[in-house]
Lab assay of single mutants.
Amino acid sequence: GQVNVNNTTYTFPTPKLAKEFAQKAAKKYNLTVHVSGNTVTVK
């Protein structure tokens, strides 16, 4: 799974890890998680 945070893309071996990372990043920066297919964007 891929996660985009502040124009930086992070790649994870599983969608589960990507989702967990996205949720932590969203909480940390007070942003929202947007899911589109296999790509998760935090903005």
Rank of each mutant, 00 (worst) to 15 (best):
K28Q: 09
L31N: 03
Y29E: 04
A22I: 02
P13T: 08
A25L: 15
T11V: 13
P13H: 07
Q2S: 12
K24S: 06
N30T: 04
N6A: 12
A26W: 08
V3M: 11
Y29K: 06
A22S: 03
V33I: 07
G1A: 12
K19N: 09
N7G: 14
N7F: 15
F21A: 03
Q23A: 14
N38S: 08
Y10R: 03
T14W: 03
K43S: 14
L31P: 01
L31F: 06
K28N: 08
N6P: 10
T39Q: 08
V40E: 00
T8V: 14
E20Y: 12
F12I: 01
T32Y: 06
T32R: 06
K19V: 08
K43Q: 14
V42R: 01
K28G: 04
A18T: 01
K28M: 11
Y10A: 01
V3H: 13
Q2V: 12
H34D: 06
L31G: 05
L31M: 08
K27I: 08
V35T: 04
P15N: 11
V35K: 02
Q2N: 11
K43W: 15
T39N: 05
N38Q: 05
T14F: 03
N30L: 06
A26Q: 10
E20H: 08
T9W: 06
A25I: 15
G1F: 10
H34T: 14
H34L: 13
A25Q: 06
V40I: 04
T39M: 08
K19D: 05
T11N: 05
N38H: 05
T9S: 08
V5Y: 12
L31T: 06
T41H: 06
Q2L: 11
N30I: 03
T8A: 08
E20R: 14
V5Q: 11
K16A: 13
H34A: 09
G1W: 07
A26H: 07
K24C: 15
Q23K: 14
K28H: 09
Y29V: 04
V5H: 12
A25W: 15
Q2R: 09
K27A: 10
T8I: 14
K24N: 07
P15M: 11
N30K: 09
K24V: 11
T14D: 05
K28V: 10
P15E: 14
P15I: 11
L17N: 03
N4I: 12
N6V: 14
V35W: 07
F21I: 02
P15H: 14
T8L: 12
A22Q: 02
H34F: 14
L17P: 01
V33H: 02
T8E: 06
N4V: 12
F21Y: 05
T14R: 02
Y29P: 07
F21W: 15
P15A: 14
F21R: 01
K16V: 06
P15W: 08
K19H: 11
K28I: 11
T11P: 02
Y29I: 04
N7W: 15
A22V: 02
S36N: 12
Y29S: 05
V40F: 04
V33Q: 01
G1H: 12
V40D: 00
V35H: 03
L17I: 07
A26K: 13
P13R: 11
L17V: 04
P15L: 12
A18C: 02
Y10T: 02
Y29L: 06
N30W: 14
Y29D: 04
E20W: 15
S36T: 09
L31E: 03
N38T: 08
A26S: 09
F12Q: 01
Y10L: 06
Q2D: 11
T9K: 08
K16Y: 08
T9Y: 09
T41K: 04
K19W: 15
V42W: 05
K43H: 13
G1N: 11
T14I: 02
K43V: 15
N38L: 07
S36C: 08
G37I: 03
V33M: 05
K27S: 09
A18M: 01
V42Q: 01
F12T: 01
V33N: 00
T39L: 07
T32G: 05
K43N: 09
L17W: 04
N6T: 13
F21S: 00
S36A: 09
F12P: 00
S36V: 13
N4P: 11
K43P: 05
T32A: 08
G1P: 13
G37C: 03
T8P: 05
T11G: 02
T9H: 06
A26V: 11
E20D: 07
T32S: 09
G1M: 13
V42I: 14
A26G: 05
V3E: 11
T14S: 10
P15Y: 09
T8D: 06
Y29T: 05
T41M: 07
H34I: 15
T11W: 13
V33F: 09
T41I: 13
N30F: 09
V3Q: 11
A18L: 02
Q23R: 15
K28E: 09
N7V: 15
Q2F: 11
L17A: 12
A22P: 00
P13S: 12
T8R: 15
H34V: 14
F21N: 01
F12S: 01
G1C: 15
K24F: 14
L17H: 07
F21H: 01
K28D: 07
K24T: 07
T41F: 08
G1T: 12
T32F: 06
K16Q: 13
A26D: 03
V5R: 12
V5N: 11
Q2G: 11
K16M: 09
H34S: 13
N38R: 14
K27G: 06
P13N: 07
T39Y: 05
N38K: 08
K43F: 15
S36G: 03
G37N: 05
V3K: 07
V42K: 01
S36P: 00
Y10H: 03
E20A: 14
N6S: 13
N4A: 12
N6I: 14
V3S: 12
K27P: 02
G1Y: 07
E20S: 09
N30S: 06
N38I: 06
K19Q: 13
G1I: 14
T32Q: 10
